[in-house]
Design a protein around this nucleic acid. Structure first.
Lengths: 205, 205
DNA sequence: GCGAACTATCTATGGGGATAGTTAGCTGAC
DNA sequence: GTCAGCTAACTATCCCCATAGATAGTTCGC
């Protein structure tokens, strides 16, 4: 049920169409939440039916039109209620670590390729998130500035701080994953490439 | 399709029944992969139909019986093939970070409760994983020792090292999450002028 | 010999999400 | 003036997984 709350979070900033939301999920908010349009449009209709949103037809060109969704008072209440609820932590499902635990079954080169992919994946994300932090600091984040424009000045510091806090956490996590992949690459080399005394030394007592 | 490979991974160690696998997913392997029995039993039957496993009826008491699954040559091939394939990194869905980005919407006490729950959750897991590392080092991990018994001595170092590497990565990640939650708690205090619940006996009005 | 706790397996239902494909209008460059 | 590329919205299908519950046999202590 988190897609609903992710949508509410975005729509509290500014009214948007399904298309806008789909773009937002691909870009700015991606890596915190992600959803294809085929989930977004039906969910928006369901949310409107539940009274959390109202959709208004907006003309678009001579004949075209689009549907812009606004959060209702009920929607705001629901969002606040969710924000105050405890999160449920489900058991993790971690393909990368599942693999790592059985990495002796992989060819050394395949193992290396996987660890490099892991590193590359998180390096890319880290760079994206670093860019986000830069945008927050320089006031060039469109969504954040819109949010600030609709919020009282007394809350600006908190809004900025929590956004920054979120991305800093993601960056630190990405850096941990990169480091972990690098230790893995060293381990693969040590177990396969190097000299046999080294390999023995790798065995923990 | 990773449940299938998680099951193969476990069954390469030793033949097991659906019930054994269900227990294994709840205990040892949990937090790397998890699945309820209602997924495991049908998947095992599908895997047998696909020729990856063979199931043999084993008597259990005077009238009872159970079905023990063994990995076939085709199953081993499939597992090795999967281990050599690159992993696909799907976009993340991270409720905790989604929340953090909009934490100004939550009551300060609710925000604190969430961050404490985050910390407690990862602290618990970290302790479980530390215990796993201890088991690996002291040779008291039943699964690992069974695995080693079936593997040539030349591979023992690698098997132990990859297992340890996996859990070390999980531990480091947990420690990062704990640290992040603590920075969050400090931030909430800073933005709200201190934590009123911290000095509960002499809380100022 | 009875009940409690455990072992063992299976079914049903529904939600969430991935992937792919369809339809239609708009905009701007060439 | 038309074609490519974008904006906008919707549909269909399949898989994975979560939750709940049904059924039956076993073991062991009292």
């Amino acid at each position: 049920m988190s897609l609903r709350h992710a949508l509410l979070a975005l729509l509290t900033v500014t009214p948007m169409t399904g298309y806008d939301l789909s773009k937002a999920f691909q870009a700015s908010v991606s890596h915190v939440w992600h959803a294809p349009d085929s989930q977004i449009y039906p969910e928006l209709r369901r949310m409107e039916a539940d009274g959390l949103l109202v959709g208004t037809e907006v003309p678009w060109g001579p004949r075209g039109k689009k549907r812009e969704y606004h959060v209702t008072a009920a929607g705001l209440t629901a969002f606040r209620a969710w924000m105050n609820e405890p999160l449920s932590y489900t058991r993790e499902r971690d393909p990368a670590h599942l693999r790592a635990a059985y990495l002796e079954w992989a060819e050394p080169d395949a193992a290396r390729a996987q660890l490099r992919a892991h590193r590359a994946n998180y390096a890319e994300r880290r760079d994206e998130w670093l860019e986000k932090v830069r945008e927050i600091d320089t006031g060039t984040s469109a969504m954040l500035e819109k949010r600030l424009a609709h919020a009282p000045a007394s809350e600006h510091a908190a809004i900025r701080a929590y956004k920054r806090y979120t991305y800093e956490g993601l960056i630190a996590r990405a850096e941990h994953e990169i480091e972990w992949a690098e230790r893995g690459l060293a381990l693969v080399d040590q177990l396969n490439g190097g000299d046999p005394t080294r390999t023995d030394a790798a065995a923990p007592a």
